[in-house]
């Protein structure tokens, strides 16, 4: 068998105390740890550092972006709210203006109509009065005429119109 123990460990005692194995242990420790050190120093740590730092940068960038977006959203919201308030005010004023316009128009047309009605009433009254007067005159004339003709028939004499008129009320 090619596997051989160190002499002292076969002789007894702790293998740790076998000085003859120290040189080999230390030599191979230097070789392996040296390789590991160079690997860590040149390959592993720089890569780890860049990934960790990239992530940190990314996170902080994302956070600042989010902050920016939040501020933007806030300002948009404020703008929107201002627009809503201003349009509310506008709507109210439009409503009020329209209402007062309509009111004015209603008032105006009411007045016009009232005046028209008044005029019509007056005219009608006038017409009625005139007709009344005419009718009375007509009756008078007709009465005179009738009286004249009746008297003529009775006495064969034409009575003066004026005479009859005198007797009429």
């Amino acid at each position: 068998m090619s596997v051989k123990s160190f002499a002292a460990s076969e002789g007894g005692g702790l293998p740790q105390m076998d000085i003859s194995s120290y040189s080999s242990q230390i030599f191979w420790l230097i070789v392996t740890f040296g390789i590991l050190y160079i690997f860590m120093w040149k390959i592993a740590i720089p890569q780890l550092r860049t990934t960790v730092e990239e992530r940190k940068d990314k996170i902080s960038n994302d956070l600042s972006d989010a902050e920016q977006l939040k501020i933007e959203a806030q300002s948009i919201l404020e703008e929107y709210e201002a627009k809503i308030t201003s349009s509310n005010i506008e709507a109210i004023s439009i409503f009020n203006n329209t209402k007062s316009d309509i009111d004015k128009k209603i008032d105006l047309s009411k007045k016009e109509t009232d005046e028209k009605i008044k005029k019509l009433i007056e005219e009608s009254q006038q017409a009625i009065e005139n007709k009344e007067k005419n009718a009375v005159n007509d009756i008078r004339e007709k009465t005179i005429e009738t009286t004249q003709s009746i008297v003529e028939k009775f006495i064969d004499k034409k009575i003066n119109e004026e005479d009859i008129r005198k007797h009429l009320i």
């Binding site: 003859s20 194995s21 040189s23 080999s24 242990q25 030599f27 191979w28 420790l29 070789v31 392996t32």
Partner: peptide
């Protein structure tokens, strides 16, 4: 100097 490759060296590797 004895720098034999041993089971210790093997596990270091």
């Amino acid at each position: 100097v004895d720098i034999s490759f041993t089971n210790s060296s093997q596990f270091m590797v």
